[in-house]
Design a protein around this nucleic acid. Sequence first.
DNA 1: CATGAATGAGAATTCATTCAT
DNA 2: GATGAATGAATTCTCATTCAT
Lengths: 205, 205, 205, 205
Amino acid sequence: MTRGNTRQRIQDVALELFAEQGYERTSLREIAERLEVTKAALYYHFRTKEDIVVSLFKDLTRPIDELIEWSKQQPRTLEIKREILCRYQEALSAAAPLFRFMQENQATVRELSIGETFKERMIALIELVQEPGSCMTDRVRCISALFTMHAGMFFTQNVEGDPEEKREAILEVAIDLVTQAHHRSQSQTETPWARRNETGLTAEP
Amino acid sequence: MTRGNTRQRIQDVALELFAEQGYERTSLREIAERLEVTKAALYYHFRTKEDIVVSLFKDLTRPIDELIEWSKQQPRTLEIKREILCRYQEALSAAAPLFRFMQENQATVRELSIGETFKERMIALIELVQEPGSCMTDRVRCISALFTMHAGMFFTQNVEGDPEEKREAILEVAIDLVTQAHHRSQSQTETPWARRNETGLTAEP
Amino acid sequence: MTRGNTRQRIQDVALELFAEQGYERTSLREIAERLEVTKAALYYHFRTKEDIVVSLFKDLTRPIDELIEWSKQQPRTLEIKREILCRYQEALSAAAPLFRFMQENQATVRELSIGETFKERMIALIELVQEPGSCMTDRVRCISALFTMHAGMFFTQNVEGDPEEKREAILEVAIDLVTQAHHRSQSQTETPWARRNETGLTAEP
Amino acid sequence: MTRGNTRQRIQDVALELFAEQGYERTSLREIAERLEVTKAALYYHFRTKEDIVVSLFKDLTRPIDELIEWSKQQPRTLEIKREILCRYQEALSAAAPLFRFMQENQATVRELSIGETFKERMIALIELVQEPGSCMTDRVRCISALFTMHAGMFFTQNVEGDPEEKREAILEVAIDLVTQAHHRSQSQTETPWARRNETGLTAEP
DNA sequence: CATGAATGAGAATTCATTCAT
DNA sequence: GATGAATGAATTCTCATTCAT
């Protein structure tokens, strides 16, 4: 009758509700009702409630894993870093509801056998846009760049303006941050005496 | 024995558990057990579970409200913006567990009659460090500055290094971001021709 | 591949699991999984879960029915009684898992439309090794003889020693019990004056 | 209102229903309904369904533990063995419904974190009425003696006759069995040549 | 012969909450 | 101030069973 797409439909509705109300506030009854199936049907497709989240996570997280994998293969040039940020943004918006969910249900997700996995990914990415051995400030800059993109989810919903314009602005700021960190570290290594000079942003003429 | 401070103790333990496990995953039974009182005792001090959170929120959020109030009184100079960020960081670390809780339970908090309140505060602060009418990129920079501080909670726990050093680095990066936005807007208004020149980060040799 | 013997395989696996975990604790899903077929396949071969048990019962209980039938044809001599016990033991060990199941799931079996049937069989057998009108003690002896054999199932698994040796010992004790009952009843009938004298076991020097 | 006896009432009703229908076939709803309380009330008094059984078990099993303890202190004379059997019978009938339950739900009980405990107790008792190093047949006799008493539960319900008379008959048979084992072992040790002679039961004039 | 998909009924358990004492 | 006892409503999950294909 409904043909093999039920599993997919469960995932869709579940994600929608999880993102909207949170994981614990969303009951399987609710999901089932919205799908006009019985609770038991959900259990035909997923072993537990947690399993639904895990499946969502796996399905939608793949792009990021691929990005990490790809990045590891690349040289750590500024060009590549830019590309990483750009692709990360794409991955985030492709899976926007999931990431919104992940962000807004961290406490829950942390106990959900995928939490660590997500944090690990973030740390992996941070390290990939960061020069090894760079100073604390630059490490913060890189973290900040990634969080800026996450902030985008919030930003996109709560601040007025053209979405596309916002997207570009977010990317620009993130790239700025990583660029600064990149240059400072480069100069730090190659020409330490130039350091003060490069700090740039705070010391403007 | 424990005399009169029970209300306080409930708040402490509740916050601890809420921050650790999340709001919904923490039951009143758990709180009561850890305090070695009965659930009913909690109801002597708080009308509902939600009430506990609301009370925490009110107690610990005051500094931020005061900060907002104070900021509104001040001229929008760079100096003041710096001060705002600095004070915001202090407020955040003073109430670290609460903010960790707020951040990790957004989905829950959103339905909790205080959620909007929190978002509103964020938006108020963003506007206070932002020049009115500034371009999208600069708005993002300000948002990013605030989120950088939030990222600090994550950062503080998951990245190695001296806490004080981290704190300073975070503040530095946030100030950087706001400073950039500040200068660009100034120049944009006063000397539009200087704009390109000021962009700094994107204009690499 | 497995061709036609599926019904048999279901019975085997079901009995195995029922004996191991009990009837209610064993779900059809479990049986199906162990067989690597679907639950629905079970329903092709058996109308209900209960049906599986009933079929097992019927298949494996026949020897006992035959034994009862045969016994009824025989004269009630001591020789025959010995034979009955011996054959009963054989029947029990041939169907050991079933009887283990019956013994360990009596509460369940009782509601299963076969329970009474089993009890009836026991009573029938007891009567066949017992002299009609014998005294209470001798009736107990006969009951005890049969239960001794049942105890064998327990004994076999929880006490060390050579299985064959155990089997013989069990049979010996059972025969002893029935023999005593047999003789006492004989003498009771024929030479009542000898009774006290025969009590034997309780009369210590 | 109902005063502190609710816990007791739950145990009573639960045992009644467990003994009647079996553990798994008895739902907490049923117990609660019969008591005219809510299911949740049961959970106020017991942490789980299993806990109810465990509590029953503990409350009612104590006499047997005490019997075992006492027996260990005594010399292994025939007198003492008689006493053990006699007391065991008393313990059994005092806790008749529980033992009926244990016997009829062995498969269930086995997974219930008390199963082994029960078996261990049986084995302990068997060893206490048995001469160390006695032959297989005599070991069976002792096992049989204990099982005879268990059979009593069955016997009492399915065979006609005065209960008190039955009780005595059961005890007599059990004592007979242990007595035989006792004597045989004694003579075996002291006067091996007398062995045949002592077997008694099989060698009748 | 067998499966994939689904259901309806019911299970155990948990939770926030109440209230007489 | 606090407790012991209880409730009502919900939740996750499991199970035997069905049926079109």
